[in-house]
Design a protein around this nucleic acid. Sequence first.
DNA 1: ACATCCATGTAATGCGTTACATGATTGT
DNA 2: ACAATCATGTAACGCATTACATGGATGT
Lengths: 183, 183
Amino acid sequence: MSKENYTKYVILGLLTTHCRSGYSMKKMIDTSLNYFWKVSYGQIYPTLKVLVDEGLAEMSDVVDDGNKREKKEYSITEKGQEELRDWLQRPIVSIPVEKNELLLKLFFSRNVEKDCSIEQLNSYLHLQKERLAVYQTIEKMIQSYSTGLEDERYWLITLDYGKRTTNAVIEWCEETIRMLSKN
Amino acid sequence: MSKENYTKYVILGLLTTHCRSGYSMKKMIDTSLNYFWKVSYGQIYPTLKVLVDEGLAEMSDVVDDGNKREKKEYSITEKGQEELRDWLQRPIVSIPVEKNELLLKLFFSRNVEKDCSIEQLNSYLHLQKERLAVYQTIEKMIQSYSTGLEDERYWLITLDYGKRTTNAVIEWCEETIRMLSKN
DNA sequence: ACATCCATGTAATGCGTTACATGATTGT
DNA sequence: ACAATCATGTAACGCATTACATGGATGT
């Protein structure tokens, strides 16, 4: 019952899209997955090596002739595809705990002035509204990056999740601020 | 710009409620904070020691007379209170990325049958509905545990956040399942 | 008698971030 | 010339989980 190494699957998954290099994967993650996942270079490059070692991916050192700029291109193997599909089909047994700093602070807010909490809520509200704008950007990314109709469909579904939950949080922020403000 | 050690603040915060021992803190976390935070014994006990070392908490070894059962009771110091309040007032600069396994899987679901995704959504929906029931339990906990009116107020605010976002997720699940099912 | 809860702790391991290091290419 | 972007990587560190170990008290 060892903990799953998600990074492995993120990379395998990205190899089924247009991503071929560690660098482009990082880009993709930072733009399109940033509201529900993140990965650093410190994980990407080592994991890529592991995948090759395990026969789940293949690397082709691409050095365009006289072009000395190093660029490694990876592709998923048949075995990698199976591993990915296997993981995609495995049921999710429990909802992970999403650590929320704002809620943690609010939980102990008896210890500070009420205005302090309102202040925290206000800036959180602001951050959430900014995120709504990010979703617009992602929507455009999706339209330009999707490899086919199928990818786009699922990407928009995840995006919808983001929008809805963000909107719910915004509403909660606004109502809570209103409630704390009077009285 | 070192990463904050939240566990420290969780424990300091809990010391301002009725929690006095590591064991009872774990209980509290697992019942009332479980939808936005979790901490294991492997963090609690060492952190408790650190807090004492730093003068933020005090320990009184309690061995009820002939009672050999070991039980350590902790309390927050004046310095600890300040440290906590200081942290509570520090603004939250960014929304952390809440890793979501379901969204990750959906994002790459082009690689599996549509029914597989619907299946995943269904079980996720089920988990979310179970969570709604958990909130009822927490609400009761709050009423029995709160040390005063002030604590209760903030605890209900965080609970409301949980309910609202969970409801938003449930709606998204249901609509997405419906959408994927036809066509 | 036996299970479950109360209660405290440690060691190994793994995941992930941050900071650092390097260097080519492209655009202004 | 210079900044920004493309591109790959490693080492140190810290946080957190898991598994293990121990033992008293309580309930059935």
